[in-house]
């Protein structure tokens, strides 16, 4: 569960995030929409414990990230826009390595199972990552978080640059993870994908959450109109 309470963060006097309040419950997917510099990545970095808020508190499963980052990171699976894995290792070896860093020793079958669960075709498991597409690398990235048994998934522009099929597979995978009880926060520019995948949507503008709504309550076109209105005003 993610809780952001009255959080502000500024860099050299400019607010990146201002009085932000957010909550993502268990089994919920929250999409954060916003232009570049809206504060999406700053929010994610505060959740990851790499940035401390100037004021307010950030919690993962009720643990403060600014004071217990080491503990909260154990609960987080993070999928950046570009999942850069070790190109000289296979997908399976990458997963094995990252799992071992987290202190998890899985058998080969278990690792294969995680990769398959994350929709990576079995013939790719033993191929070097240098030959993977962006979507395939993202699947390994999700498998790393999944194998870690993350309670919280943070995704920063995950669908950027993915082809429609890969993007669709990602959406299905995220919904599967949420159905298993994960809390997911996904920062994106992709209004239609966010509308499709997320339960709730927040629109960030210059570090301020200007709108929060349920995705059921709005169609894709309405959401686009609304988003553009906020961005233009």
């Amino acid at each position: 569960m993610i809780q952001i309470q009255d959080v502000s963060k500024s860099f050299k006097g400019d607010f990146a995030v201002q009085n932000l309040n957010l909550e993502v419950k268990k089994g919920e997917i929250l999409g954060l929409l916003g232009a570049n510099g809206a504060g999406k990545s700053t929010t994610i970095n505060m959740l990851l414990g790499f940035l401390n808020p100037d004021s307010g508190n950030v919690y993962i499963n009720k643990i403060d990230t600014s004071t217990n980052a080491h503990d909260t990171r154990k609960l987080i699976g993070y999928i950046p826009e570009n999942v850069n894995l070790y190109p000289y290792l296979t997908g399976l070896e990458n997963l094995d390595y990252f799992c071992k860093l987290a202190g998890l020793n899985y058998t080969k079958d278990e690792l294969e199972n995680y990769l398959s669960t994350c929709s990576l075709s079995s013939d790719a498991h033993h191929k070097k990552v240098s030959g993977y597409s962006k979507g395939m690398r993202q699947k390994v990235g999700i498998a790393i978080a999944y194998a870690k048994k993350a309670k919280v998934y943070l995704l920063d522009e995950p669908a950027s640059g993915l082809d429609p099929l890969a993007s669709n597979e990602l959406s299905t995978l995220l919904q599967k993870l949420a159905s298993e009880g994960a809390s997911i926060l996904m920062a994106s520019h992709d209004i239609f994908r966010v509308r499709e995948v997320c339960n709730r949507i927040g629109i960030l503008k210059k570090g301020i959450l200007v709108k929060e709504l349920n995705s059921k309550d709005v169609s894709a076109n309405e959401l686009e109109t609304l988003y553009l209105q906020f961005m233009q005003n």
Binding site: L48, R73, I76, Y78, P80, N84, F98, L101, A102, I144
Partner: peptide, 13 residues
């Protein structure tokens, strides 16, 4: 530069 450092630290390194 590749962003892997973030992932490594998140995995507990």
């Amino acid at each position: 530069q590749s962003g892997r450092l973030k992932l490594l630290v998140l995995q507990g390194a």
